[in-house]
Amino acid sequence: MASDGVVVEIGKVTGSVGTTVEIPVYFRGVPSKGIANCDFVFRYDPNVLEIIGIDPGDIIVDPNPTKSFDTAIYPDRKIIVFLFAEDSGTGAYAITKDGVFAKIRATVKSSAPGYITFDEVGGFADNDLVEQKVSFIDGGVNVGNATPTKGATPTNTATPTK
């Protein structure tokens, strides 16, 4: 695992066909100046998982989280898009600690492993708008004895992609 920078880890949970599971997305290594904004994309298989919603985690402190935390689910493109932009203008609602960034709610549709993997990152910046190093650890849903650990090695991303 990367020793510096922010680590975004997609949790690994267990479920069975027809059940709804909650998959946490963790941030670790949050910089001392916090995270003022970030955007990134995960990939998944809508034939295996139906993403039914995404909720902000406990490290989102904006009293009205829909102003700073936004997501979009595109089953036709097989992606989930995340956007966080601190909304106070003063840094008061920045992410300042490690913990759960988001909770992905999904219904298991198939007995195949439900991988959720890193696809791309736009950027991560602290309260001074300084770009942060970030790496990703894939996860998803274990169905029966299947284990979604494909790509469990962190993917280092030093520069934003478009």
Rank of each mutant, 00 (worst) to 15 (best):
S16F: 11
V134W: 00
K103E: 06
Q132P: 03
I59Y: 07
P160M: 07
K67F: 10
G99S: 14
D62R: 14
P24N: 10
V143C: 07
T20H: 06
N142Y: 12
F27Y: 14
F101G: 04
N145H: 13
L83P: 01
G18C: 06
N64I: 05
I23K: 07
T90F: 15
S16L: 11
A125K: 00
D70T: 12
E120Q: 03
T149Y: 09
A102H: 04
P56L: 11
N127K: 02
L83G: 01
K12T: 12
V7G: 04
D39K: 01
G99T: 10
G18H: 10
G5F: 06
P75M: 02
F82E: 02
V7H: 09
T149C: 11
Y93V: 14
D138K: 13
T90H: 08
K103N: 07
F124G: 00
N64E: 15
N156F: 13
D62C: 15
D45E: 08
V48G: 04
V17I: 03
P65I: 06
C38E: 00
T159M: 10
I95E: 00
I116A: 05
V134M: 02
F82T: 01
V17T: 07
N127Q: 02
I35A: 08
I116C: 08
T153W: 15
T149G: 12
K78L: 03
G57L: 13
T117G: 07
V100C: 07
K33L: 07
S68V: 15
V41G: 00
T14P: 09
A72M: 01
K78P: 01
G15T: 07
G11S: 08
N127W: 01
D138S: 11
F124Q: 00
I60R: 15
T107H: 10
V6T: 07
T19L: 10
D45N: 09
D138I: 05
P148D: 04
V108N: 08
G151K: 14
D126N: 14
S68Q: 09
A102P: 00
S32H: 11
V30C: 03
K150T: 10
I54E: 03
V7N: 05
R77T: 02
Q132N: 04
Y115L: 08
I137C: 06
N156A: 12
R28C: 15
L49T: 03
V13W: 04
N142P: 12
E131W: 01
K133V: 11
I23V: 05
N47S: 07
C38G: 14
V134P: 12
V108W: 05
F101K: 04
I116E: 02
T66R: 13
Y26N: 14
R77Q: 06
G18A: 10
E22D: 07
G122Q: 00
N145L: 11
E120N: 03
D70Q: 15
R28M: 04
I80T: 05
R77P: 12
G144L: 12
G34S: 05
P65Q: 09
P63D: 14
T107Y: 10
T19R: 06
K103H: 10
F118A: 07
T14E: 05
F84E: 06
G18Q: 08
I73L: 04
S16V: 07
S111Y: 03
D39P: 00
P154H: 08
V6M: 04
T157W: 13
A92R: 08
F27Q: 12
T96I: 10
D55A: 11
I52A: 08
T155I: 10
P160E: 14
A94I: 03
A158H: 12
D128G: 07
I51W: 04
Y44Q: 06
D4S: 04
T147C: 13
V48T: 04
T71S: 05
V143Q: 14
G29R: 11
R105N: 13
V41Q: 00
V108I: 10
G114W: 04
G91D: 15
L83I: 00
D76R: 00
I137N: 12
S16W: 01
N64K: 13
G34M: 14
G122A: 00
S88P: 02
P160I: 14
V81G: 02
T20C: 11
A36I: 14
A85R: 01
G53R: 06
D87Y: 15
F27E: 06
N156I: 09
I54P: 05
L83Y: 00
P31E: 04
Y44R: 02
Y74G: 00
D58T: 08
I51N: 09
T96V: 12
E86Y: 00
A85D: 00
M1R: 06
D4W: 05
G114Y: 05
V81Y: 01
V17D: 13
V48L: 07
F40W: 15
G139E: 05
D119K: 03
F136K: 04
P75R: 02
G114K: 09
E9H: 07
K97G: 14
K12A: 07
D4C: 02
E22S: 07
V100I: 10
Q132L: 09
T117C: 15
G53E: 12
P24A: 04
T157Q: 14
D126Q: 02
T19M: 04
D45F: 12
V7R: 07
K12E: 06
V108H: 11
A36K: 00
V17G: 04
G114M: 06
D58Y: 06
I104R: 01
G144V: 10
V8I: 14
A36R: 00
E9Y: 09
T159R: 09
T157H: 12
T157F: 10
T159I: 13
F82L: 03
D76L: 02
T19F: 06
R105W: 05
A102R: 14
P56I: 05
T96H: 11
V7D: 08
D76G: 01
I59K: 14
S3C: 03
I51Q: 09
I60V: 09
D128F: 05
A92Y: 13
I60T: 14
T19S: 10
F136W: 11
V121F: 01
T155H: 10
I54R: 12
G57Y: 14
V100L: 05
M1T: 10
D70V: 15
D98S: 09
F84S: 03
Y26R: 11
V130R: 14
K12S: 11
D76F: 02
S32A: 08
F101W: 15
E120T: 02
A106R: 00
R77F: 11
I54M: 03
F84W: 06
D138H: 10
K103W: 13
T117Y: 08
T153S: 11
A92N: 11
Y44T: 06
V141E: 13
V30E: 03
G151N: 14
I59M: 15
D62L: 14
I79Q: 01
Q132G: 02
G91K: 15
A72E: 00
G89C: 03
V8D: 15
G140K: 14
V17P: 08
F124S: 00
N37V: 01
T90K: 05
K78M: 04
S110A: 14
D58C: 04
